[in-house]
């Protein structure tokens, strides 16, 4: 393996890692606050990308990528809140909400995916890149677009981290995640916070979808593979800290890039799952996890 190949693999892994970090953080946000796993997250990714395409693409409205991304992210925030009120809220105080929400979010994912199929059709589409052209880094040439994707993902994640740490709303969100009843007794509107957390998660999914759409092709089931990877990342990293899934995302991204080079695209998921199982056997709460869940 030459140095150039190694750098190529590393950069590919970092791009993957940035995308996974964005998706996994969205998943972890819902997981920690509401205590459920959202199987519709992958479809949110696809829907976000398609809404952006509808606004941005010259084949459709042609309003430009920026307008498309903005409307898609805000739109997905609203759709996410709507999905919460429809699919999660009715079971909120049921003791078996974890099981119920698996079924309802899977149902939501299937319905949304078919809606996308119905509206936009199964043909592959692509968003225009954020930045055109190439640049050279560490002796290799990579596209500016991929660097922009990494930078944007990191900036958004940092902003989200600051929001959760500093903003009153973000702090209230962490409080609800850690002790729902104490938060309620302080006068925090738990339902509204849950809806906002779900909306934020969907908005992050939309951003991830747009970034994926600008690198690869989009189709109605484009979210299922990233959802699987995000699931690995979240379990692998643990959700004890906000940063846990982010570190794990880059580890998984780099591992995947290396595995794709070593054993090929077909076998790399197998190897990834095997590594995940080994890690979980040794440390069941995840690589960066602690004994208890919290944001």
């Amino acid at each position: 393996m030459t140095l150039e190949t190694l750098n190529l693999i590393l950069l590919g892994g970092i791009v993957l890692g940035a995308l996974y970090a964005l998706m996994a953080t969205g998943l972890a946000l819902v997981w920690t606050t509401l205590g459920i796993f959202n199987f519709a997250h992958g479809t949110f990714i696809a829907l976000g990308a398609y809404i952006a395409w509808q606004i941005a693409s010259t084949e459709a409205s042609g309003a430009g990528l920026l307008a498309g991304a903005g409307i898609s992210i805000i739109g997905m925030f609203v759709i996410g809140m709507f999905v919460y009120y429809l699919l999660i809220k009715p079971f909120e105080r049921n003791p078996d909400i974890v099981v119920k929400s698996v079924i309802t979010t899977l149902a939501g994912a299937t319905i949304l995916e078919n809606v996308i199929n119905l509206v936009w059709g199964p043909r592959n589409k692509q968003l225009s890149p954020l930045l055109g052209g190439d640049m050279s880094l560490l002796g290799i040439t990579i596209s500016r677009n991929e660097m922009a994707v990494v930078a944007l993902a990191l900036v958004i994640l940092a902003a989200l981290g600051v929001f959760l740490q500093r903003a009153p709303l973000g702090r209230a969100m962490r409080a609800v995640a850690q002790n729902r009843e104490a938060a309620q007794l302080m006068g925090i509107d738990v339902e509204r916070l849950y809806a906002i957390a779900f909306g934020l998660s969907a908005a992050l999914a939309a951003l991830a979808g747009i970034l994926i759409g600008s690198i690869r092709f989009m189709n109605p089931s484009m979210g299922s593979d990233p959802l699987m990877k995000a699931l690995i990342v979240v379990i692998f990293g643990g959700i004890a800290r906000f940063t846990g899934p982010i570190y794990a995302a880059f580890i998984v991204g780099l591992l995947e890039a290396v595995m794709t080079y070593l054993v090929g695209l077909y076998w790399s998921p197998t190897v990834l799952f095997a590594i995940m199982i080994v890690v979980l056997v040794a440390k069941p709460e995840g690589l960066f996890g602690r004994y208890r869940k919290s944001v």
């Binding site: 009153p168 702090r171 850690q178 002790n179 007794l185 919290s294 944001v295």
Partner: peptide, 25 residues
Amino acid sequence: IHVPQGNLLFPDMTVAETLSIAPYA
């Protein structure tokens, strides 16, 4: 305002953060 029995509050937040939530709420 109800201060419940054996209040566990928010285990992973600092005291300052916890005190800052109440006025917001």
